[in-house]
C-alpha cells in the first residue's frame, strides 16, 4: 500500500510538471488557435540555461532560474514575431508545419550548441525529504516544490486572468479576435503576452522537470511537450483548470502504469488515453463545445 502512495505522489509531481507545460499550450491554443509545437523545446532551452548558468557562470539557483525565465520569455516572443505572426491568416496546416519547423530548429540548434551528450543536471532544490508512515513513504524535496509551485502558478494565473485588464483582454481575444479589436484591445500585444507567459512557465517547468529527472539533452523537451499537449486536450483545450486536472491525471496514469503494467508501455498507454478521450469527449473533461459556423 505504501508503495502505491509513493507512486501516486510521484505521479502527482510529474503531473504538476505536465500541468505547468500544458498551461502554455492551452493559453496559446485558446488565443492564437494554433498548436505551438515548439513549446516543448522552449522547456529544453530553459533547462540548458539553468544548467549553463549554474555550471559555467556559477550563479546561485534562484538567479539561474530567473535568467532562464527571462531567456525563454524573450525566445517565446521572438518565435511568435518571426514565425507565427505573419501566418495569422494562413491555413492551419501551414501554421502547424511552421511550428514543427520551429521545434526542429530549436532541437537542432541546441544539438550544435550544446552537443548531443546527455548532461547530468544538478537539482536546484535543496529541501530535505519528508518521511511519512514511519519512513515507508518518502516525499523528496523536488516533489514537494513541484507540487507547491504548480498550485501557486495555477492560483496566480487564474487571478491574473480574472482580475487584471490584460487577463480580461486575453479572454476577449480568445473569444472573438475581431470584436476584441473593435473594443480597443491590442490584439498583437495580447498574443505576445500570452506567448511570453507560456514560455516563462515553460522555463519553470523545465527546471522542475530536470531537477526531478536529472538528465538533459536536446530532445529532453519534446516528449514531455507532447504529453503535456495530451494533458491539455485531456482537460479540455483552452481551459486553465482543465490543463491542471488533465496534467495531474495524466501524470498519475503514467506513473501507475509504469509501476504496475509495464515501464516500456507507459508512453503507449498515455497516448491511448489521448485517443480514447478524443473519441469519447473531444472537448476534454472541462472544455466547452464550439459549434462550427458556415
Amino acid at each position: 500500500m505504501s508503495s502505491f502512495f509513493t507512486f501516486l505522489i510521484n505521479g502527482i509531481s510529474l503531473g504538476s510538471i505536465y500541468a505547468i507545460i500544458a498551461l502554455g499550450y492551452t493559453m496559446v491554443y485558446g488565443i492564437a488557435k494554433m498548436l505551438n509545437f515548439a513549446h516543448g523545446d522552449v522547456i529544453m532551452v530553459g533547462s540548458y540555461m539553468v544548467f549553463l548558468s549554474m555550471g559555467s557562470l556559477g550563479l546561485p539557483p534562484v538567479l539561474a532560474v530567473l535568467l532562464a525565465v527571462v531567456v525563454c520569455t524573450v525566445l517565446g516572443i521572438t518565435i511568435e514575431k518571426i514565425a507565427y505572426k505573419p501566418l495569422r491568416k494562413a491555413s492551419p496546416l501551414a501554421v502547424l508545419i511552421t511550428a514543427i519547423g520551429v521545434s526542429y530548429f530549436l532541437q537542432n540548434a541546441a544539438l550544435l550548441f550544446f552537443g548531443a551528450n546527455t548532461k547530468m543536471f544538478t537539482s536546484v532544490i535543496s529541501l530535505p525529504a519528508i518521511s511519512l508512515a514511519e519512513g515507508q513513504i518518502n516525499i523528496t524535496g523536488e516533489t514537494q516544490v513541484t507540487i507547491i509551485v504548480c498550485i501557486i502558478i495555477m492560483i496566480g494565473l487564474s487571478l491574473f486572468i480574472k482580475k487584471t485588464k490584460a487577463g480580461q483582454a486575453m479572454l476577449a481575444v480568445s473569444e472573438d479576435k475581431g470584436a476584441a479589436e473593435l473594443m480597443g484591445v491590442n490584439v498583437n500585444g495580447t498574443i505576445s503576452l500570452t506567448f511570453a507567459i507560456g514560455s516563462a512557465l515553460a522555463a519553470v517547468a523545465g527546471v522542475l522537470l530536470c531537477s526531478t529527472y536529472p538528465t538533459l539533452n536536446p530532445y529532453t523537451g519534446s516528449m514531455p511537450g507532447i504529453k503535456a499537449f495530451t494533458a491539455a486536450v485531456f482537460g479540455g483545450i483552452g481551459s486553465i483548470p482543465g490543463a491542471f486536472v488533465g496534467g495531474i491525471l495524466l501524470g498519475i496514469i503514467e506513473n501507475l502504469s509504469k509501476a504496475y503494467i509495464s515501464s516500456q508501455l507507459s508512453d503507449a498507454i498515455v497516448f491511448s488515453v489521448l485517443i480514447i478521450v478524443l473519441l469519447v469527449k473531444p472537448t476534454g473533461i472541462l472544455g466547452t463545445k464550439i459549434s462550427e459556423k458556415v
Partner: peptide, 23 residues
C-alpha cells in the same frame, strides 16, 4: 551535422514565403 537544422529552416521559410502577406 547541419542537415536537420537546414531542413527546419527550409520548413519555416517555405511556409513564410507561401503564406506571409509581405511575401
Amino acid at each position: 551535422d547541419y542537415r536537420m537544422l537546414i531542413y527546419s529552416i527550409v520548413l519555416i521559410v517555405m511556409m513564410l514565403f507561401n503564406w506571409s502577406p509581405k511575401a
